[in-house]
Simulated scan of single mutants.
Amino acid sequence: MDQLDVKVLFGARVRHLRKEQGFSQEDFAHRVGLDRSYMGGVERGERNISLENICLIARALNLPVSQIFIGWTDVAPPENTPEE
């Protein structure tokens, strides 16, 4: 895999975990407490997300923060797929 932007890698990992748990992007954003368009930007790697928001995402996924980063480079980022 080519070296990708960490924001893209993180966003792909969040999208993978969200889908794995069966959340739509809108429902997940509500659960996290962030706007859906912001979460879309995170998943597309457009946002340089804060540590506070990473913690909110981990809590919404019922995962320790460290779990988000385990295997995160193994998740292929989406190729300009439309938001869900």
Rank of each mutant, 00 (worst) to 15 (best):
L51W: 08
N48I: 03
D5P: 06
Y38E: 10
V42L: 01
K7T: 14
K19I: 11
P77E: 03
T81H: 13
I57E: 01
P82T: 06
N80G: 07
D2N: 12
P64F: 03
I49H: 02
R15P: 00
S24R: 13
R13F: 01
E84A: 04
R36T: 15
N62Y: 11
G45F: 03
E43W: 08
G22C: 09
P77C: 05
G40I: 10
L63I: 09
Q67A: 15
A12T: 06
L63G: 07
D35G: 13
I70D: 12
V32T: 10
D27Y: 08
A60S: 11
S66L: 13
E20I: 04
L4K: 13
K7D: 09
Q3T: 09
I49W: 03
Y38R: 08
M39C: 07
T81V: 08
L61Y: 00
L17N: 06
E79R: 00
L34R: 15
L9T: 03
G41N: 07
Y38H: 14
G45T: 05
F28G: 01
Q67Y: 13
V42N: 08
I54L: 11
N48Y: 01
R47Y: 03
P77S: 03
E84D: 15
Q21D: 06
Q21N: 11
V6Q: 07
A12Q: 06
G45A: 00
W72M: 09
G71A: 04
A29R: 07
N48C: 00
Q25N: 06
A29Q: 06
G71K: 10
A12W: 01
F10M: 03
I54M: 12
R36F: 06
S24T: 15
H16E: 13
F10D: 05
G11S: 03
I70W: 05
P82Q: 12
F23R: 09
G11M: 00
P77T: 02
N80L: 08
R59M: 12
L61P: 08
D2K: 14
S50Q: 03
N62A: 14
P82A: 04
W72Q: 00
V14D: 04
P82N: 08
Y38M: 10
N80E: 11
F28D: 05
A29H: 05
T81F: 05
G22S: 07
E20K: 15
V14M: 04
I57Y: 00
L61T: 10
K19W: 10
N48V: 03
E79G: 00
V8K: 15
P82S: 05
G33T: 13
L17D: 02
S37D: 09
L56H: 11
L56R: 15
A29E: 07
F23M: 10
R18M: 03
Q67N: 14
T73N: 10
I49E: 01
R18F: 04
L9R: 14
S37K: 15
A12G: 00
E79V: 02
N80H: 05
G22T: 14
N53R: 11
G40K: 06
D74P: 06
L61C: 02
H16G: 00
I49R: 00
C55D: 14
R13G: 02
D35W: 03
G11V: 01
A12Y: 05
E46G: 05
T81S: 11
H16D: 13
A76Q: 09
R44Y: 08
V14L: 04
F10N: 01
I57A: 04
L56E: 08
G33W: 09
C55N: 12
E52L: 15
L51K: 12
A12H: 06
N62E: 14
